[in-house]
Amino acid sequence: MAQNNVDVRERPPLSNARLAILVLLGAETMLFSGLIGAFLVFRVGNVTWPPPSHIGIELPRVVTGINTALLLISGYTMFQAWRAIQKNKVKQLRNWLLITGGLGLLFLGIQGSEWVQLIRKGLTLQSGVYGGIFYVLIGCHALHVLSAVIWLFTVLGMAMAGRFSAERYTGVDTCTIYWIFVVALWPILYVLVYLS
């Protein structure tokens, strides 16, 4: 019964924002499942991989391995940002968000430079199935990292404007879930595309 505490509204156990991001990630998972499914058809369907037409082209496994580590570290720093706002430490939140965004941009920069080198070697979207599936799958993930970085810097801007507190941090919460999804997806793609 609402008597003196009229303003106190009962919060649902799972917020609408969290439920929405879960549904979005479900759709994203299905998108990547389709792409991974297409990759599996070509990978398992070819006895020699890369196909004979691309024998000389080696994917940069070591550099991408280091890049993978950077992205995994960014997952940790994003988690720390989330923990910081739960403790109402806004300054720490800003710092962790800045580090996470920087790591995301570094990941994209390294991947971009790798792509330039691969295109120079002759691996293009039109060069065959190998190039086609590589650029579509890895490019789709890179687009997701880019959108996550844009989202993160928007959240950082809001944090600098003092819009978040320990009681009110939905923006940080949803951005963290999306970032962790993008980070968790990458090692799967790395193992499938670069190491298999």
Binding site: G37, A38, L40, V41, G45
Partner: peptide
């Protein structure tokens, strides 16, 4: 191999939903 590829892919995508 192409049959196996399709098979893997179908099973994988069937499990995902």
């Amino acid at each position: 191999p192409i049959g196996k590829g399709f098979n893997f892919s179908i099973l994988f995508m069937m499990a995902m939903p």
